[in-house]
Nucleic acid binder design. Structure first.
Lengths: 152, 152
DNA sequence: AATGTACCCTATCGTTTTAGTAGGGAATAG
DNA sequence: CTATTCCCTACTAAAACGATAGGGTACATT
């Protein structure tokens, strides 16, 4: 259950975009420096985000990237899906495409429930929240839970 | 956010073990056939489970594997951790080891909340539940939610 | 003691994914 | 016309993934 560097970078760059107070587009290079992301790698990521309609770009001098929709309408889930595909998959299949035999049949419910709970977090948090430095109350409550920050 | 084949196989084999009505140990070969898992690969997985104290083994004729603790004390999270390490990690680090700068600082809360919600499912379901063909009520409620089985 | 069963350990292997890098082309502002 | 900035394709090194192979070790039965 790993979150890839690509997904992490993509979210950070998008937050940076949303938080930017520049009137016009922000160049990839600025985003890269602000978030310590390799510049060329970030450009590849931004291209994915553009294909998915999350950012828009403008070329040439004074060009760069802007959000393609209001920050409050872009969720972390949207970004992760844009760069990494489905949020949760088991052996390269979506949970609901799986098919278990014999004693393991109830396992399907576990993976589906897992996906529900993953969505509950990632689809609830928007880039507007993060740019403001907050998360929705429901998510905040999760991080306040006993042991949330404990490691193993 | 992928669940590896290894983790999936490990859980299925453990369920099969718990559901087995054999008095003694069950050979890896039987588990492999029951769940359609490549035999040699499964042996490697069972070795991981043994190292983590989830199963115990006996060699020789009449040998095989048994659960090392009662099925109700083995969670899916235990099994996934035994074969794949930490449940959730971001760029090879545990969420609570991350450190974000600037505008992205609230992102840390997102990954921590994600982990809380992943744990809520995987630490709640035991092998005893699954062998019986059920999941705990709290997990069942998640799978009953609107859209839980819908794909994208 | 011999035999067959079954786990145990190390190594290897082909493919895919991950995390980047490189080169050069195309648009745009000034 | 020139500097800037995005755009597209290709490439690569290293790791992870999903296994497989060979040979060793323990145990029960005969």
């Amino acid at each position: 259950m790993r979150v890839s560097a690509k997904a992490d970078y993509a979210v950070r760059a998008t937050i940076e975009l949303a938080a930017s107070d520049a009137a016009g587009p922000v160049p990839a290079e600025s985003l890269a420096q602000a978030q310590q992301i390799p510049h060329r790698f970030l450009e590849a990521i931004l291209r994915d985000l553009r294909r998915e309609g999350i950012v828009a770009s403008r070329r040439g001098a004074g060009g760069g990237y802007v959000l393609a929709r209001p920050a409050r309408e872009v969720t972390v889930a949207d970004i992760v899906r844009a760069v990494d595909g489905p949020l949760v998959f088991v052996r390269d299949e979506r949970p609901s495409d799986l098919d278990y035999e014999g004693a393991a049949s109830a396992l399907l419910d576990v993976w589906v429930a897992l996906r529900v709970n993953v969505r509950a977090v990632l689809e609830d948090v928007t880039v507007a929240d993060l740019a403001r430095g907050t998360v929705p109350d429901a998510v905040q409550e999760l991080t306040d839970a006993e042991g949330a920050w404990r490691n193993p």
